[in-house]
Simulated scan of single mutants.
Amino acid sequence: MKITIVMKGCQFSMEVGPQEPILEIKRKIQQFLGIPIDSQTLTVCDWELVDGLDLADYPLISEGTKMHLSTPQSPPPEFPQTTTMKITVKFSSRKIEIDVDKTDTVRSLKEKIHIVDATPIKRMTLFFRGSEMGDDFRSLSEYGMEESSEVVVFLKNMNRAMADPPSRRLAVVVQTASSLMNAARIPVEMNDTSRVEELRRLLVERRIVPVDEYIFIHKQRIMREDCSLRWHGVENGDYLYVFKGTVSRGGF
């Protein structure tokens, strides 16, 4: 039967047996989300599920049951919905607003500006509170950025051919959940500038997954459909995990 695992900011479906041990369900969650078994608490209707029992020991669990997953950290780091913020990016003659995460790096911010405004990344020099944000690998929180902060963009003059590195071809492995294709591993090749939504369309067109809503996870973090594989830091040989479900910025 199929049940739904629910966390704050995320939910996905999972195929389980009617007598499957609770511990086995936690093992599957650890495999796909990277959350250690001993850090997981599963509840149904506010009743905590005990590791030593099976689903058959809980008559209230049936097809379509929603099983809530919580961890000692709430929300867990891989679903940082409480750290998102809106900032203003100021150019010499215009301003734009961008949604970012405090854990985003300066490089990630430049990628987002490029996606929204088409400004070449290599032309950007970013300033915050009068100081240059010169380290692409530092996070926005390390620079003290907060909600409604303003980042100023100065543009360097350079040859257009040098503005941004060319796209690279990536070979990745898409790992599907057991509820989709019995935990199949599918090799896929795409450009690193391809967006996650393009990857989803490719899987549907090749009939690897049926038409539906999906969550993609890379290195224990949910991927954003409107951002590129390069933006997510995907490299050759990386695994991308796919679950059926949707991402919500609010609770369930």
Rank of each mutant, 00 (worst) to 15 (best):
L53T: 07
L53C: 08
D54C: 12
L55V: 00
L55I: 05
L55T: 01
L55R: 00
A56M: 08
D57H: 14
D57Q: 09
P59G: 07
P59R: 07
I61F: 10
E63L: 05
K66W: 11
K66Y: 09
M67T: 05
L69K: 04
L69F: 10
S70L: 08
S70Q: 10
T71N: 13
Q73F: 14
P76F: 09
P76Y: 08
E78L: 09
F79M: 15
P80R: 10
P80H: 05
Q81F: 03
T83Q: 15
T83S: 14
T84V: 14
M85W: 12
V89M: 00
S92D: 12
R94N: 07
K95C: 08
K95A: 07
I96R: 14
E97W: 10
E97F: 07
I98E: 01
T103A: 13
D104W: 08
D104F: 09
T105Y: 02
V106C: 03
R107F: 05
S108L: 10
L109P: 05
E111I: 02
K112S: 03
H114Y: 04
A118E: 08
A118G: 11
P120V: 09
K122A: 14
R123G: 02
M124N: 14
T125M: 07
T125Q: 06
G130D: 06
E132W: 02
M133G: 04
M133P: 06
M133D: 00
D135C: 03
F137V: 00
S141A: 15
E147H: 08
S149R: 00
V152D: 15
F154I: 05
K156A: 11
K156D: 06
N157W: 07
A161Y: 11
M162R: 10
D164K: 00
P165E: 10
R169E: 07
A171V: 12
V172M: 14
V172K: 06
V174I: 11
